[in-house]
Design a protein around this nucleic acid. Structure first.
Lengths: 211, 211
DNA sequence: AATTTTCTACTGGTTTTCCGGTAGATAGGG
DNA sequence: CCCTATCTACCGGAAAACCAGTAGAAAATT
């Protein structure tokens, strides 16, 4: 694999960026641009037949979210390594992109040599980031880790069972407790999270990484 | 900051690992071990008064999950950079640890020079991984990206509102639709996710990164 | 030993969700 | 133009969740 020509595709809704990247990568030996696309649709159509080892992917697209597109591409073409190239510099966005299957992340202000390094590293099967991204990722903001309700052991236990779709009666049966007790715990959980129902609570709990 | 002595603390429930790491890091100049702990409690007690620039953190602990401990530490001592040092090699575990505020991740089979490099890089404010971890992270498994139900525009819209804790009636009001219509969508969503209620659906949706 | 937290359980009632259908109107793509 | 997917809307009934309280027993902490 490595040492071969790298087949690169680019998705970005801004034509200027596409041109800029093309020019920028012209000088790089071993990298061949096999397609450039302004939206998700065209990109997917290309990947049905065409080849891309590496895909530079913007997150803001006209017809889909880059997050969705990333996952879709990994489904239909798992071998394609996706490098996010975005203006979004929030830690949470970077993590989401990785969760959707990206193999790297760069900000758009990345320098040419760094961009090329990232493409090469991704092609070698390594997770890769531009330096600016590594700096962002190393320092989680206090806002991101905003205080999580302190749950008791029992509450955590019950929260997990609720998340699994178990009803109050089912949980009561499993834990050999009265359904009324489970209801109380459930009520306390809702109150601790400050949410009106389990749907919102689930979102809060999962975003806090509680499961 | 950089160039100074790095104050390092270690949390690992296996005494042998603690000793091994201490010996291994003796030779490294500029790194001073200020504390070693076998559980979460002792570590938190230390951080209340003591100092640690970098914390090597195992995920499996007797009295808490390393994930929980990581977040707690970042809350009480945000300046402390946390490097996970674990046997868990699943991509999802690594992502979770980052979500909880870690600045890096290494597997326990890491070589001495790599360990030291990671500690130094973390101290310089950079996200850092051992090479093995970068390889794992670059290739998301098919299982992780297991197929997500294909939702229509409307369904996505309603899913988000449900996640915000809105009731059927509220959603109907917002979208100027009949509550019965919303109920149908809700029903279809449950069916597509294969979940018996919104709690489980929320978990599924969030784990698929749908929000 | 004293205090606080957690776990347990209850009453009684209201709201909401969930289940099983059916079905016309309106796109969007081949 | 046709076909499929989507969006809309309905019925009736069962199950579950949510709300607002109270309260004793058991742990855990101080």
């Amino acid at each position: 694999m490595s040492g071969q020509t790298i087949h690169l595709a680019i998705v970005d809704d801004h034509p200027l960026i596409l041109e800029g990247l093309q020019k920028l990568l012209e000088g790089a030996s071993g990298i061949e641009i096999t397609g450039t696309f302004g939206n998700a649709r065209d990109c997917l159509a290309f990947l049905a037949t065409g080849r891309a080892d590496i895909l530079l992917l913007d997150i803001t697209l006209p017809d889909a979210s880059g997050l969705d597109l990333c996952r879709e591409i990994k489904e239909i073409s798992p071998a394609t390594r996706i490098l996010a190239l975005s203006n979004h510099s929030e830690r949470s966005m970077i993590l989401q992109m990785l969760q959707q299957g990206a193999s790297g992340y760069m900000l758009k202000n990345v320098a040419a040599d760094e961009l090329i390094r990232c493409i090469r590293e991704a092609h070698e099967g390594l997770l890769t980031f531009s330096k600016a991204v590594r700096e962002i990722m190393a320092k989680p903001s206090a806002a991101e880790l905003r205080e999580t309700p302190r749950l008791t052991k029992r509450e955590k236990e019950i929260l997990l069972l609720i998340a699994d779709g178990k009803t109050t009666a089912e949980i009561a049966g499993m834990l050999h407790l009265s359904p009324l007790t489970i209801e109380t715990h459930r009520k306390n959980l809702l109150q601790k999270f400050g949410t009106p129902n389990v749907a919102a609570m689930m979102k809060a709990a999962l975003q806090h990484g509680l499961m």
